[in-house]
Simulated scan of single mutants.
Amino acid sequence: MANITISGASTGLFNMTDEIRDIGNSKYLKVAMSDKPYYARLSTEKPSDNNMYVIIDNTKYFIQDNPILFEPIHSEHIYQIFEQRLTVWLPKGKYIVELNTTSTTTDTFTIPSGLNAMILYNYRRGLGVQLSIGSDGSRIFYKRIEASGDKTWFTISRQGD
């Protein structure tokens, strides 16, 4: 990941990414270095440790220290036969997966570089609840637990690099 250091009246160090999908649907600042684009994530939320900002369409956007934005993925279902498929961009990093029926199991997995992933979440009588994450035919994560209680849910959260 590239970074930019700005000094003067205010000093700041900002990480940038060369993968625009890492910043989610956020506004961004594009910086070209040796003809390669890098992106810093912008937000109207002011970070506690810097004052660097740009104004776009009369709105002040602050440069965020970390360019990667990943909103946790959460889904829940009552017990009836279901299958849910999601295609998501997973930026590089470490992820925590919580899967629940009546008790919660917690597992982790790591993505060395960003990728498009397919999340498959389902319940079948006799097979229990299954959560599978894969990309290009490879399995990244798989967990199956017995069904109990009246509903099931999962949450996937990014924990950083």
Rank of each mutant, 00 (worst) to 15 (best):
M1G: 10
N3Y: 09
T5G: 11
G8C: 04
S10W: 14
S10M: 15
L13C: 09
N15C: 15
T17H: 06
I20T: 10
I23P: 00
N25K: 05
S26M: 14
K30V: 11
K30G: 15
A32F: 14
K36R: 08
K36E: 09
S43T: 15
E45Y: 11
E45D: 12
D49G: 13
D49N: 13
M52S: 15
I55C: 04
D57F: 06
K60N: 03
F62A: 01
F62D: 08
I63M: 06
N66I: 04
I73R: 00
E76S: 14
I78T: 04
I78N: 14
Y79Q: 12
Q80C: 12
Q80P: 08
I81Q: 04
F82A: 03
R85M: 09
W89Q: 12
G93D: 10
G93V: 12
K94A: 08
K94M: 08
Y95P: 05
L99M: 03
T102V: 07
T104L: 10
T106E: 11
P112K: 07
P112N: 10
S113T: 15
N116Y: 14
Y121S: 11
Q130Y: 09
L131K: 02
S132P: 02
D136W: 06
G137M: 04
I140Q: 00
Y142G: 06
R144N: 07
I145R: 10
E146W: 04
S148L: 08
K151C: 10
S157D: 11
R158H: 13
Q159S: 02
G160C: 06
